[in-house]
Simulated assay, not measured.
Amino acid sequence: MKHAYMIIAHKNDVTFSTLLRMLDHPDNDIFIHFDAKVKDFGTEEMQKIRNSLSHAGICFTRRTSVIWGGYSQIRSELILLEAAVGHGHYDYYHLISGQDLPIQSTEEINSFFEKNKGKQFIETFSLSEACMDRVKYFYFAQERMGRKELKDLGLFLKLIMKATYVIQNRLKLYRNRQISFMRGANWFSITHELAEYILENRKWIRKTFRWTRCCDEVFLQTLIHNTRFEDQISEQGYLRCIDWDRGMPYIWKREDQDYLQKSPMLFARKFDSNVDPDIVEKICEAYG
């Protein structure tokens, strides 16, 4: 089986280089979207990465600036899918971040997907009423705001954001009324057929989610709702080990090694070599 690993990255650190080393296998090709906000990542750094790999093919996509909660997060995923699907036919397309690591060997991962061929590994559930604000209002400043708290924004932008929300709410100017929205993690492992279906619906995705908030966790699940692809979703979920109880998400540390090695998941996030380099090294030794 052939696998396309699509990486959204924003740091060229030890975690990122370890991830690439662990994915360096003849059955894998690696596609990287590196955040345009990082100015010290250029041609020289890309060539060093190419030279460091012996087996996997590698492709750097065009770079865009990715802002938390903005449509740019969806755009980066579509850029990666376009690059991977345009390059060739892969059995599975895996979306991961530059702070993820495999927690199974490549042979075990490939064997798993061989046994489960045709299934989609996506998290999906109904979008709660409390989260409907994400999709029913226009968020024209989201690409400027990101994770910043209102107190950190300029006065003019604060006033515009507040006024826009109040007007839409008071006048009940709700958008996307006829759509049944779903939600789930943005990370996935999907088949070639579904990857093509997503790209075929790029215009609908942009029209529906262009000015929404945090909808990288909504667009895919909503797109495939009530389609044949929804019936293909595995009960095993999206195969990522992520701890939201201790962090946003929690950064794995050396004391978590035993827990990670016992996990039935295939990938884990979040790792940070600046916080705990030991766990990054130990995971690479175990599964690299």
Results as ranks from 00 to 15, higher is better:
residue 196 E to A: 08
residue 77 E to W: 00
residue 192 H to K: 09
residue 127 L to E: 01
residue 167 I to C: 10
residue 119 K to H: 13
residue 181 F to H: 00
residue 198 I to T: 01
residue 179 I to Q: 00
residue 90 Y to A: 03
residue 154 G to F: 04
residue 144 R to H: 13
residue 185 A to K: 00
residue 111 S to N: 12
residue 114 E to M: 04
residue 74 I to W: 08
residue 109 I to V: 11
residue 92 Y to S: 02
residue 119 K to C: 08
residue 179 I to T: 10
residue 90 Y to P: 08
residue 106 T to L: 04
residue 199 L to F: 05
residue 156 F to L: 15
residue 117 K to N: 11
residue 116 N to R: 11
residue 96 I to D: 01
residue 199 L to Y: 06
residue 140 F to Q: 12
residue 139 Y to I: 07
residue 144 R to K: 15
residue 182 M to P: 00
residue 112 F to N: 07
residue 165 Y to M: 14
residue 126 S to T: 14
residue 170 R to E: 05
residue 76 S to H: 04
residue 202 R to C: 10
residue 145 M to I: 15
residue 156 F to M: 12
residue 204 W to S: 06
residue 177 R to E: 10
residue 170 R to C: 08
residue 173 L to H: 06
residue 138 F to A: 12
residue 142 Q to N: 12
residue 104 Q to I: 00
residue 184 G to Q: 07
residue 78 L to I: 15
residue 195 A to C: 02
residue 142 Q to S: 07
residue 106 T to I: 04
residue 99 Q to Y: 08
residue 149 E to C: 10
residue 93 Y to C: 10
residue 74 I to Y: 08
residue 159 L to V: 11
residue 109 I to F: 02
residue 182 M to A: 03
residue 163 A to K: 09
residue 98 G to L: 07
residue 132 M to T: 15
residue 172 K to S: 14
residue 128 S to D: 12
residue 202 R to Y: 03
residue 120 Q to P: 01
residue 139 Y to R: 10
residue 182 M to L: 02
residue 143 E to M: 09
residue 162 K to M: 14
residue 86 G to T: 06
residue 112 F to R: 11
residue 123 E to S: 13
residue 97 S to P: 00
residue 205 I to E: 02
residue 182 M to S: 08
residue 142 Q to V: 12
residue 103 I to G: 06
residue 99 Q to A: 09
residue 108 E to T: 13
residue 193 E to L: 05
residue 155 L to T: 13
residue 99 Q to S: 07
residue 154 G to Q: 07
residue 95 L to W: 03
residue 104 Q to M: 09
residue 150 L to M: 13
residue 183 R to E: 04
residue 183 R to I: 00
residue 149 E to N: 14
residue 139 Y to N: 11
residue 185 A to D: 07
residue 131 C to Q: 15
residue 75 R to C: 04
